[in-house]
Design a protein around this nucleic acid. Structure first.
Lengths: 146, 146
DNA sequence: TATTGTTATACTCTATAACTATA
DNA sequence: TATAGTTATAGAGTATAACAATA
């Protein structure tokens, strides 16, 4: 008997919805949808060697990823080039303008998050973030082992 | 610059999906879907004075709630009775068998959650849960004030 | 007339299954 | 033949609008 008041899952879902709802207008002002941002962020640290890998990294399947990539490519934010080593694969990478927009978005998101977390004392906040990240990895690992 | 590695929203969404995915088979074994469980849980502490309130409490709108209530009522897990004071309203409450099943589900969910959290040291775990609940309330309040 | 619950319709999102090209 | 990407179709989930009962 832990005295937990709510279910963990319900609380996570509730928080997710609240945070996403708060983030959407911030991104919309930059002309970016939530899933655009997820894809751009996934490419921030370097190109994806195939669309399949990018889909796995972002939690979408390949078919749902395509219209997003189409849109972002049409806006000149990323490039899809066939991999010379295996021309079935498309290497996906940010353009300069994509890198710039991604940084702008991320800064805006971080500012918002700081505001959302402002009600927590500083040390509690950092401890929370640390545990949260650790838990996300732990649970992902458990699922992987299913 | 906080040194956060991932976006808060992305981490919450990732965790939500992982936890829900883990919970679904546990509930399915009891013949309960996720949204059934959300509704049953909302009624655990007492009847809802109208379906509209129940919808708000569970984050569904009234139209989406109805088929769920139909199903649970047909299974004899809850009752919808017109409020004598205003017969437009339906009071929704668990039957005895609904109360029993809800308790069984909740116990199963709590067991699963304990397993998911088992990788965290005890004191870190309780601190995390405390902050999580507090943050959920904080952010809900901020949204309410929009 | 306004509101609760209900039903019916339309729309969006997601998943499944074919199709093209490379290997 | 197998795989990456793409396109097309079908299905589930969600939202919008009309309807009946009550106030």
């Amino acid at each position: 008997m832990t005295g937990q008041r709510h279910d963990l899952g319900a609380t996570f879902v509730r928080l997710s919805r609240a945070v996403v709802a708060a983030e959407q207008p911030v991104l919309a002002e930059l002309g970016v949808e939530m899933w655009d941002y997820v894809v751009l962020s996934a490419l921030r640290d370097g190109p994806a060697h195939s669309q399949a890998r990018l889909a796995a990294a972002t939690g979408r399947d390949t078919t749902r990823l395509i219209p997003i990539l189409d849109r972002l490519e049409a806006r000149g934010l990323l490039r899809r080039t066939p991999d010379p080593a295996d021309r079935r694969n498309r290497i996906v990478e940010l353009t300069d303008s994509g890198t710039e927009l991604t940084a702008t978005c991320q800064a805006a998101i971080r500012t918002l998050e700081a505001r959302l977390l402002a009600g927590l004392p500083g040390d509690e906040r950092t401890a929370f973030i640390t545990t949260l990240e650790r838990l996300a990895e732990l649970i992902s690992a458990q699922r992987g082992a299913h």
